[in-house]
Design a protein around this nucleic acid. Structure first.
Length: 424
RNA sequence: GGAGAAAUGGCAGAGCGGUCGAAUGCGGCGGUCUUGAAAACCGUUGUCCGGGUAACUGGACCGGGGGUUCGAAUCCCUCUUUCUCCGCCA
């Protein structure tokens, strides 16, 4: 959520920048400004009325103390009208604030100045590529065939237990999951991220804090009886650790990593790219989250990209890093790099990580601030996060790229974790 | 799940209807003293929304929401959380 102050002071910039996200925000911005001005003037009236009431009450207090009950009764008369008025103003200000918030929440984050304009994935900018795409020849299979052949992932069994998009990992398939999780967590720890293990369900406040609510409500599984949401990513509970927190600037950067399962309803995405592991309702992911000083958040974003790049390199997967164009970026992000790995069985690039700087957009919702060393004032921090990494598509690429006639070769870096070097 | 108790500033803890944003202690920050440090002493110490170039100033906040009252941290209702006891249980 953008701050009111920023919108008031930079309305042209806001409208201009949001064009990069293919949005004409003119009406919304004007509405925000109007409502905010109304809010301010109403607040002013209310404050003045309350000040008067406070004043009278104080007088009555003094009179009562002096035993002048009759005089106190007289003064009391004056308050009826004022009370009425303050009540009305209170209601009106509530309505205005509600309306203001409803509009404010519709404004996406401003894209960073380096974000290319564009409509969709085809306009993204390839930043770097690495690794070698394996030439498998004719006898190459997509991972869903390999999973069946070696009996390591059973999609149909998942259908029986739950529904589509909930696979069952078996034997070496299950161990490979565990190996990847441990590998990713250890790498994150080595890079200075503090491991946390958060709850997998969150309340409404947390869902709002990171921006999933209200606009992505339908994408989360909702536990109605207790009004909890299953987390779509560890970003939600981990970032919300810092909700309503004022940090000292000496504590920057705050770096956390967490492994969690992620639950996504993926409503509306049926049909396309959903085979096998490509799109699941439940999957495992290791996330990295950083809270950083505004002056350094973009340097930190690069460091996070470097970290993820090291991971895909160690796994030996062909990859490319793309900078998302305005049209392909998420609502909350100011700058996003996606990592894609090539899955040779499907001959497809699969997105395995998304690393973003949200600047103060989430922090404003979270009320996540820090005390500036120079002027001692509280300011909004910057939040960043990235997948490091999401498992299913990594597994898909590993299975497909490292398939051999004798079985599937496990990358060296994983062998200490898996305990085997071949799936056969 | 049942019965009871509680929730106050960074922490501890007073206040139980009238200048209470809130005593006191600890901690933090600044200063005096000291070669330096400690101790001692003095001062200072929350967040948010407004007005004002500023000094300063109005308002809100004592777990959340609502109510009673001229006036609520204090009374009432409700929700949440914590603690104690009982029950159930991985």
């Amino acid at each position: 959520m953008l701050t009111l102050k920023f919108i008031q002071e930079n309305k042209e910039t806001v409208i201009d920048r949001l064009k990069v996200k293919n949005m004409d925000a003119t009406t919304l911005v004007m509405k925000v400004i109007d409502l905010d001005n109304l809010r301010k003037s109403t607040q002013n009236q209310l404050d003045n009325t309350l000040a008067e009431i406070n004043n009278i009450s104080r007088q009555i207090g003094i009179l009562m103390k002096n035993g002048q009950a009759a005089e106190a009764g007289q003064v009391r008369q004056k308050t009826t009208e004022l009370k009425e008025r303050s009540k009305e103003l209170g209601i009106s200000i509530n309505e205005t604030e509600k309306e203001l918030n409803n509009v404010l929440v519709l404004l996406p984050n401003l894209p960073h100045s380096s974000v290319p304009t564009g409509k969709g994935a085809e306009d993204n900018e390839i930043i770097r590529e690495g690794g070698v795409i394996p030439q498998l020849g004719d006898a190459s299979f997509p991972h869903w065939d390999l999973a069946k052949k070696y009996n390591i992932i059973d999609f149909e069994l998942g259908n029986k237990l739950t529904g589509s998009g909930f696979p069952v990992y078996i034997g070496k398939g299950a161990k490979l999951q565990r190996a990847l999780i441990s590998f990713f967590l250890d790498e994150a720890s080595k890079a200075g991220f503090v491991e946390v293990m958060p709850p997998l369900m969150v309340n409404e406040d947390s869902g709002f804090g990171t921006g999933q609510l209200p606009d992505k409500e339908g994408q989360m599984y909702h536990v109605g009886l207790d009004n909890f949401y299953l987390i779509p990513t560890a970003e939600v509970p981990v970032t919300n650790i810092y909700r309503d927190v004022i940090l000292e600037s000496s504590s920057f950067p705050v770096k956390n990593t967490a492994y969690t399962p992620c639950f996504r309803r993926e409503a509306g995405s049926y049909g396309k790219d959903v085979r096998g592991l490509n799109r699941l309702h439940q999957f495992d992911k290791v996330e990295i989250v950083v809270i950083e000083h505004p002056d350094r958040s973009y340097d930190t974003l690069e460091l996070m990209v470097d970290h993820v790049e090291r991971l895909v390199k160690k796994l030996g997967l062909p990859y490319r890093i793309v900078k998302l164009c305005g049209g392909d970026m998420s609502f909350t992000s100011a700058l996003t790099y996606d990592f894609e790995v090539f899955a040779a069985g499907q001959q497809k690039w699969l997105e395995v990580s998304s690393v973003s700087n949200f600047e103060s957009f989430q922090a404003n919702r979270l009320k996540l601030r820090f005390r500036d060393e120079n002027d001692k004032k509280t300011k909004l921090a910057h939040t960043l996060n990235g997948s490091a990494l999401a498992l299913p598509r990594i597994v898909a690429a590993l299975l497909e790229n490292f398939q051999t006639p004798d079985g599937i070769r496990i990358p060296e870096c994983l062998v200490p974790y898996s305990g085997f070097d071949m799936i056969d």
